[in-house]
Simulated scan of single mutants.
Amino acid sequence: MARRQLSAATLIQCAILLVLVWSKGTAAISLEGKLQQLEEKLESKLALVEAQNVHLTGKVTQLELQLQQQDEIKETLAFKVDQLESLLNALQKNNQRPTVLSEWKDDQSAVVTSDGMPTSCRDLRILGHLWSGIYSVMGNHSVETVYCDFTKVLDDPGFEKWIGYTDVKSARTYFYVQRETDFKVLNTPIPFEIERLNVGRAMDLTSGIFTAPRTGTYFFSFTGMGHFITSSATRVYVYMGLFLNGDKIGSGLVDEANTVSYQNSPLMIQSTLNLKEGDQVWTAITTVTTGMYLHDSTNHYTHFSGWMLDEDIYQSR
């Protein structure tokens, strides 16, 4: 009986040991699963936090940009406020200046031109200009540049300062033409065969006549070459003329005495003219001795050029 009881106790102990071993194994497996679950949850939380961080960074950047834009708007508004304060101070300082247009009515007899173009700083002020600065106004014959100080009264010497003329042309005009053959016809506008430049199309090559497209001041230059074909013991010559509307207004001459055969001599005519719109200018041979002429070839000895220096804008309007 004692041996059997011992054996039973031993069996019980063994059973208890098996239960303990099984319990520990199950617990270990359960803990490992929970640890893996925790790691997965932690990774998910970290990814969410990182996404939120990226979103917050974008929001911060956007806010910084908005703040920068607001600062720029504030600076612009501050600058405009300074401008308005300066204008207000100027107006308060100059309490003699009329503040409404009707108070200027006595000065408007000589205000603007018939087409509304200002002729002075006074005109500009009447038209509503408030800021001092450099302006273009219509002068007697051309556009002029003036400085207007609108912080001063009208009779102040510094109210208007004349600066100079403005180069304004309503039509660009300049030409340069040439011949390449001889010419000897008397009292006839010299035609041209080559057009190097003819901006404004005021020069007609076929007729040799320039027609002024606008009233103004023009410059002309003609160069030719007289050709002496035979020897002579007496004086020989070629007279050239510059014509305005049929009247000779300038001359050029090349002559020679006791000349040898085939001698060439250049001649030149230059002039600055005040022309009205539609005036015509040309060159022509006026007098020539027998056997002489204007010589030309592919070397182009005969040149005629001209351009508008200044336009009388007042007459052109």
Rank of each mutant, 00 (worst) to 15 (best):
residue 199 V to L: 04
residue 166 T to V: 12
residue 161 K to W: 04
residue 168 V to Q: 12
residue 162 W to G: 12
residue 179 R to I: 00
residue 175 F to G: 12
residue 199 V to C: 05
residue 167 D to Y: 09
residue 162 W to Q: 11
residue 173 T to P: 03
residue 171 A to E: 11
residue 164 G to N: 11
residue 160 E to Q: 15
residue 187 N to V: 01
residue 167 D to R: 12
residue 182 D to T: 08
residue 199 V to G: 01
residue 173 T to N: 15
residue 188 T to Y: 00
residue 168 V to A: 12
residue 192 F to E: 03
residue 191 P to R: 01
residue 174 Y to Q: 14
residue 161 K to I: 14
residue 158 G to F: 06
residue 156 D to T: 00
residue 166 T to K: 15
residue 163 I to W: 07
residue 185 V to E: 06
residue 170 S to K: 14
residue 194 I to R: 14
residue 175 F to P: 08
residue 182 D to C: 03
residue 189 P to E: 01
residue 161 K to Y: 11
residue 190 I to W: 13
residue 174 Y to H: 13
residue 171 A to L: 13
residue 162 W to Y: 13
residue 193 E to Y: 08
residue 178 Q to I: 01
residue 187 N to D: 10
residue 195 E to M: 03
residue 182 D to N: 15
residue 168 V to D: 08
residue 195 E to K: 09
residue 194 I to N: 10
residue 181 T to Q: 15
residue 182 D to G: 06
residue 169 K to R: 14
residue 197 L to Y: 09
residue 166 T to E: 09
residue 178 Q to T: 10
residue 162 W to E: 03
residue 166 T to S: 14
residue 161 K to V: 14
residue 177 V to P: 12
residue 196 R to L: 08
residue 185 V to A: 06
residue 156 D to S: 13
residue 190 I to M: 06
residue 199 V to E: 15
residue 179 R to F: 01
residue 185 V to I: 05
residue 160 E to A: 06
residue 182 D to Q: 12
residue 167 D to F: 14
residue 181 T to F: 09
residue 188 T to H: 03
residue 195 E to C: 13
residue 196 R to W: 06
residue 185 V to Q: 06
residue 175 F to V: 05
residue 200 G to T: 02
residue 191 P to A: 00
residue 159 F to N: 03
residue 176 Y to F: 14
residue 176 Y to K: 14
residue 185 V to L: 04
residue 196 R to I: 02
residue 160 E to N: 08
residue 198 N to L: 00
residue 166 T to I: 05
residue 176 Y to P: 01
residue 194 I to C: 05
residue 161 K to P: 06
residue 193 E to Q: 13
residue 165 Y to N: 11
residue 179 R to D: 01
residue 160 E to D: 07
residue 162 W to S: 08
residue 164 G to R: 05
residue 163 I to E: 10
residue 174 Y to I: 01
residue 184 K to W: 07
residue 192 F to A: 02
residue 197 L to C: 04
residue 169 K to H: 13
residue 166 T to A: 13
residue 159 F to I: 01
residue 161 K to R: 14
residue 181 T to I: 11
residue 164 G to I: 02
residue 158 G to M: 15
residue 167 D to T: 10
residue 178 Q to C: 05
residue 158 G to V: 04
residue 199 V to R: 12
residue 159 F to T: 02
residue 172 R to W: 06
residue 165 Y to P: 03
residue 161 K to S: 11
residue 186 L to T: 00
residue 198 N to G: 03
residue 178 Q to F: 04
residue 186 L to G: 04
residue 171 A to G: 09
residue 157 P to N: 12
